[in-house]
Design a protein around this nucleic acid. Structure first.
Lengths: 163, 163
DNA sequence: CATTAATAGTTAGCACACTAATTAATCGCG
DNA sequence: CGCGATTAATTAGTGTGCTAACTATTAATG
């Protein structure tokens, strides 16, 4: 029927969701002092990473790449525009699309940003293999969470099995 | 000197921080429909987990247990009080402390909540060993991030080594 | 070709999560 | 005892991140 999760399934220190929340906040917190001099928050930094990989990009594109709702990106992009790192304009081909491009200042920022990954890895002082393992585990969970729920009542424990 | 992070250190799909952010949002998103009938958000659920493990607890105590600022907990606890799941009163011994306790409704909610971990694990449809691996990796990173920064300029790559 | 569907963004409203500033209570030490 | 330093919460302000409702544009269909 159901997986055995031990005597106390509600034990806080066993919840993956809790560890995920704390780890995400902790690690993102390490970026704060590094990003602050560039005037970026962590989500804004992620948008810049996406743009440095390819320009121009629509909000829809950024939304699916970063797994963020366009409702979240809308005000965020306006702040990046106010900081003069990006420009926002409607596409000529399809006026539903908002085209986001880097400004010269936004492009120039990349050189500064390249130091950040090294600074974070050094700060964590963990073997890079540990970080790679974590990345692998995280990718698995992301994929699992994105997989549509099986409405079935039947299958079960850890592996789906046809009837 | 510095660790080799490959040809593009800024590649989005290699950033652990990005994977962490997406995974946290994705997994917490799975809880939303499960918690919504109980009138809880995910952070509120974590507070309830902490209280089900031991009562009463001060805000300070919850803050260090959940790794959340008391400024975040303050309004959250007021909402839990408004939902009649907890009570808030000042300690008699030390009036600086706010003592948080469960109401009968809050205690009763535990029975409902016990189904949640099973529902999430089943929904993810991942081997429990994968989740345990992830939890181990996350704990490592949390500990590493919590370790005070070595102001040193010397050490380096992945392992601290005395001179 | 007109009407309806679908798609892309924006806005509003709620709930975190952080920093900084404030308030209130307690502690430490001469 | 008294009084400055600490400690515990709260408040204010900014920035995500979500859902739901809305606007504008484009595509699809009879």
């Amino acid at each position: 029927m159901t997986t055995d999760l031990g005597d106390d399934p509600l034990a806080l220190d066993r919840q993956v969701c809790f560890a995920l929340a704390v780890a995400a906040r902790s690690v993102i917190g390490l970026y704060r002092p590094l990003l602050e001099p560039m005037g970026l928050t962590h989500p804004q930094y992620l948008v810049m990473l996406a743009l440095w990989e390819g320009e121009p990009r629509s909000v829809k594109d950024l939304s699916s790449t970063l797994q963020l709702e366009s409702a979240t990106l809308s005000p965020l992009l306006k702040r990046l525009e106010a900081a003069d790192y990006i420009t926002r304009r409607r596409s000529i081909d399809d006026e539903r699309l908002l085209v986001v491009e880097l400004t010269d200042a936004g492009r120039a920022l990349r050189a500064e940003a390249e130091k950040i990954p090294y600074a974070v890895v050094e700060r964590l002082a963990l073997p890079v293999s540990d970080l790679e393992d974590l990345h692998t585990s995280l990718s698995r969970v992301i994929r699992a969470a994105a997989t549509p729920a099986t409405t079935a009542a039947a299958p079960a424990t850890t592996e789906a099995a046809p009837a």
